[in-house]
């Protein structure tokens, strides 16, 4: 049941700045569980469930995904591209991509030498082949400025699943699932944000409009459980990762403590996360207005920003539980 919804959300088209299709799908899933929902001018989907305490909790997850944007079409119909968000070029060649209108293509890169095993792809030397033989033919299918995403194959390995859109649709699905049986005396705002991958652009705007007492953001994080990774204690399957710090943000100690207490009281396994490189919407939300208290729960994920991002379904389930516990608390942290 959850997996069916997850697949649906994973397959939605939504590169940064072009998230309306994803928003539409999420809105359909959210509608039964909230009192009102709307899309703001930047494209953030905001879903409001009313409460009685007078306090506001904002749950957030970005719904945009990384991709490519067409910058030029050459005379032979090849598309030259720029990255939308943090593409890893060597891992992004020889991949299937799809445009919003359904046009399919494959990525490759310039290879002046035949079978040069040492050649490395960079964004400027990459291109997309959409099967056309001339600029004119290609322009009938794709325009400069169009964006494409990796075709998201869903790999079901049982307890663990892989997809190119796990960052961050898995967290969108988690919020939908958590809202289903949510008990809270507070006003809960579930926000699916835009443009996280291009500089945390949407979340601060939504937080400014909502002005919540507490924000809990959800995003994926890296793990230290694969061969030869830098020292990081997070592993797949050991529970939601409660963020201490990443390159963009430090979670206030009281908010960490609050999330950890929620997990411990409900016997939910959890891990403490310090991420060496990477940022998340929490940073933008903290900097809003006079400073909004914000924390982050991360889903441990391997191979982030590749077409095979792997997560563990136990972590997903435990995160849903943890969010339900968090929003059920009467007492929210009010200082660092």
């Amino acid at each position: 049941m959850f997996k069916k919804m997850l697949i649906d959300i994973l397959q939605a088209y939504g590169p940064s700045g072009n998230e309306h299709k994803t928003a539409r799908i999420l809105a359909e899933y959210m509608r039964p569980y909230c009192d009102e929902l709307w899309v703001d001018v930047l494209g953030n989907l905001i879903c409001h469930k009313k409460g009685i305490s007078g306090k506001k909790i904002m749950l957030s997850a970005h719904m945009d995904q990384i991709g490519f944007i067409v910058v030029d079409i050459d005379e032979n119909g090849f598309l030259r591209i720029a990255n939308v968000g943090g593409i890893l070029p060597p891992l992004s060649v020889a991949r299937e991509v799809v445009f919003e209108n359904g046009v399919r293509g494959v990525t490759y890169f310039e290879t002046p030498e035949t079978r040069d095993a040492k050649a490395v792809a960079t964004v400027p030397n990459m291109y997309i082949d959409i099967g056309c033989t001339s600029r004119e033919e290609a322009e009938e299918k794709v325009q400069i400025g169009d964006m494409c995403i990796f075709v998201s194959n869903y790999v079901d390995m049982g307890k663990r699943v892989a997809s190119g859109a796990m960052d961050n649709r898995v967290c969108c699905a988690i919020i939908v699932e958590a809202m289903k049986e949510m008990q809270s005396s507070h006003d809960v705002y579930a926000v699916f944000t835009v443009q996280e991958e291009v500089g945390l652009r949407g979340a601060g705007v939504a937080a400014y409009a909502i002005s919540p007492d507490l924000n809990i953001n959800l995003d994926v994080t890296l793990t230290g459980d694969t061969p030869k990774t830098p020292a990081m204690s997070v592993a797949l399957g050991k529970g939601p990762a409660i963020k201490m710090m990443d390159s963009s943000v430090i979670v206030p100690i009281a908010v960490r403590r609050f999330m950890i207490d929620c997990a411990e009281q409900a016997d939910i396994p959890y891990q403490r996360e310090v991420l060496r490189a990477g940022g998340t919407d929490t940073a933008a939300i903290q900097k809003t207005q006079k400073g909004i208290l914000a924390g982050c729960i991360s889903i441990p994920s391997r191979y982030v920003h590749t077409p095979v991002e792997v997560v563990d379904m136990d972590d997903v389930e435990n995160t849903v539980k943890l969010i339900r516990v968090i929003v059920s608390k009467e007492q929210l942290p009010d200082t660092i």
Partner: peptide, 16 residues
């Protein structure tokens, strides 16, 4: 607070 990383203290201090 937090000048050495994000400048959070400067942002919210000047705002408030």
């Amino acid at each position: 607070v937090q000048e050495e990383r994000s400048g959070l203290g400067g942002i919210i201090g000047a705002y408030s």
